[in-house]
Design a protein around this nucleic acid. Sequence first.
DNA 1: AACGTGGGCAACCGCCATGGA
DNA 2: CTCCATGGCGGTTGCCCACGT
Length: 247
Amino acid sequence: MGRGRAPCCEKVGLNKGSWTPAEDMRLMAYIQKYGHGNWRALPKQAGLLRCGKSCRLRWINYLRPDIKRGNFSREEEDTIIKLHSLLGNKWSKIASCLPGRTDNEIKNVWNTHLKKRVSHKEEKSSSSSSSEQSNVKNGNVKLDNQFGESRKGSQEKIEIEIEFEPSVDMSCMLINDNDDIDGVHSNFAEDFDKVVVSSSSSTNSYSSSNYNTNQEDPLWSIMDEEYYPLMLDDDDHEKIIIIQQKH
DNA sequence: AACGTGGGCAACCGCCATGGA
DNA sequence: CTCCATGGCGGTTGCCCACGT
């Protein structure tokens, strides 16, 4: 697999580049009427001279009715910065915490605005106090390592320690959400076998085997047969340690 | 007014994961 | 188990526009 693979579709004779309003209308009308069960077949059925991938991208990034338009608010930008420091370039994970925003949009905002802002901040803070700690202890490096290793199916056990940032709602990353709408939502919790939430007074562990069954557990609540983590109490919990035991 | 340059963003490309045959 | 089709993701490209000279 991989090398020499045929393209996703026959691109000869297909339109490329910017979408015209007529194409948008046609795609939107088709999806509203028939849905998008099969992206590859869709353009032909909808009478569009486009690759299926192109249609999917156009729908997800621009035409979906729940897309939020306009500039990012300061709160949204701060959230992106914080989540990026935890997750790295996991744009779809970050997007799942920002309703109405797409991974592509977030990636663009990061690359054009936020990256500069963060590096300026870091320059400032490192020159003012080199011993000052960031909100996340080794979060970026360790998480990158974790995701990379996970794909290779290694057997080692990796611990990721995240110092809890009170102003960020981390719960969206832990949601056991199978109600996947256009692939926007993703299940962060399922990547891990165990989530440890610790405070100065106590430490609680939640394993993937018990967080789906322990309904009495204060961290998890059940809604419509899906399990959701409750908002972590900022005063009670200082950090989350996510432990992934490789399968 | 014409031209050059840089930033912003939509769209594309290629790789990987997943699920079905 | 293997192969293949498809969807999803992240990196990159290239067009467009605003701004400066």
